[in-house]
Structure formats: C-alpha cells, structure tokens
C-alpha cells in the first residue's frame, strides 16, 4: 500500500485559516490502513479545525468531513460533485495521488494535502510501516531473492553490499537492516547463492522517474 504520515495540524491550519467552509476528504484505502487519512483521522482533523476556528472567534466557519472509497478513481471522486462547489477549500487526507486527482477533477477549488505521502510499503506491526518498493518499472526481484536493493539499500547497490554493512545492519542507521544481508540470507535459504555471483547489468532507469512521468497503457483492456 501507499504509506503516508499525518501532517502537523498547525501546517494544515496555515493552509485553511482564511477559509470559511472546509471539506476534509478522506480515503478508505491505503491511508486508512496506515492510520493517516481514513475516516477516523479525518474526523479528528475536522474536529480540531472546528475547535481552532471557534477558539479564534470565527463563529461562521464550517468544517465538514467526507470519506470516499478511493480518491484515485473518477467514479468515487464524482460522489462529491454536487457538494464540492459550496466549499472554499478541500483538505484531502488521501495520499498525494488522491490530492492531485481531486485537484484535477475540481479545478476551481483549492485542494490542500493533509498528509505527507511517504512510500509504498507494508505494515510490520501496528504503528510501524516500512518501505518495500520504489516502482522502478523493471522488477528484478527474481534475481535478488525477493528483496529489492533499489528500495531497501540506501545506495541502491545492485552488486552486493557496500563496506558499511555491519552485523546485518546498514551503516546509515543501526535500526535499518542491510538489504544485501537480507538478500544473501535469503539466497542461502533458497540455495541460490550462485545468483549473487552474476554481475548485474547497468540498469535502464528510463522506466523509473528518470524517464519523466510514467504511464501504463493497456490496449487489451481499453474499449
């Protein structure tokens, strides 16, 4: 899933302090799972904003909340078509994708981000999410024991660990696993350490963000 983290409420107040009617728009997908921008978090944010306005003596401010199934799909975003116009601003607590798609679909309404979108990752346990994929566009996991050096090595090295790998940890942080230690452990476990000996070709980064904004176009499913 896409993992996000809450923005400080002070920052969000900075965006909307001059607005009279604000819609806090949450998303039922990834940001709900990572507890950054689901229905619950939107409720908290909306409540905090209402109290902020009241405390400032702005009695006529109105802050509403609404949750969409997803903000990255048109049909769900259409659900607020009838009400969107009445707001001075939308705070989207979806990931950056949701914020942008909302802004795109509601062209004349300011849309502000309510979370910091961080990475694609997993829930290791409640309250701890870690990165797994950077979407480089050409998956090499078949050769690296199912562990990605692009996403999980601080230097995204393709041919083994740097000299800073120590006791299985990365040199930049003792709490961070060395991706190459994980890869080697896994290659040993599946009895494929021979894969390590093969020199990795220079990567074609044109399918990564280096190649500019990307798209996937599938004619077989287009009508």
């Amino acid at each position: 899933m896409i993992v996000a983290d809450k923005k400080p409420v002070e920052e969000i107040i900075g965006y909307v302090r001059d607005c009279k009617k604000v819609l806090v728009l949450s998303c039922n997908e990834c940001v709900t799972v990572c507890e950054a921008g689901g229905k619950k978090e939107a409720g908290m944010l909306a409540s905090a904003l209402r109290m902020y306005f009241a405390n400032q003596g702005i009695a006529d401010a109105q802050v509403d909340e609404r949750t969409l199934e997803r903000q990255c799909d048109q049909e769900y975003l259409e659900e607020i078509r009838d009400i969107a116009d009445q707001y001075d601003a939308i705070v989207s607590v979806a990931c950056g994708v949701g914020v942008q798609f909302t802004a795109e679909k509601y062209h004349s309404i300011p849309v502000f981000p309510g979370v910091n979108t961080c990475f694609m990752g997993v829930t290791e346990h409640r309250g701890l999410w870690t990165e797994r994929c950077q979407g480089c566009g050409q998956c090499i996991l078949a050769y690296t024991g199912g562990i990605c050096p692009v996403a999980r090595c601080a230097k995204r090295l393709f041919n083994g660990p740097c000299g800073g790998s120590s006791n299985g940890k990365c040199e930049i942080n003792k709490d961070l696993d060395c991706a190459w230690q994980l890869i080697i452990d896994r290659l040993i476990a599946i009895d494929r350490l021979d894969l390590y000996e093969k020199l990795f070709d220079i990567k074609d980064w044109s399918t990564d963000r280096a190649g500019g904004p990307r798209k996937v176009e599938r004619e077989d499913v287009q009508i």
Binding site: P161, S166, W180, I184
Partner: peptide, 8 residues
C-alpha cells in the same frame, strides 16, 4: 575483507 555478510 572484514565486512558482513561473511559468506560473500
């Protein structure tokens, strides 16, 4: 020569 992982 001293870096981990030992095996490689």
């Amino acid at each position: 020569p001293f870096a981990d992982p030992f095996e490689i």
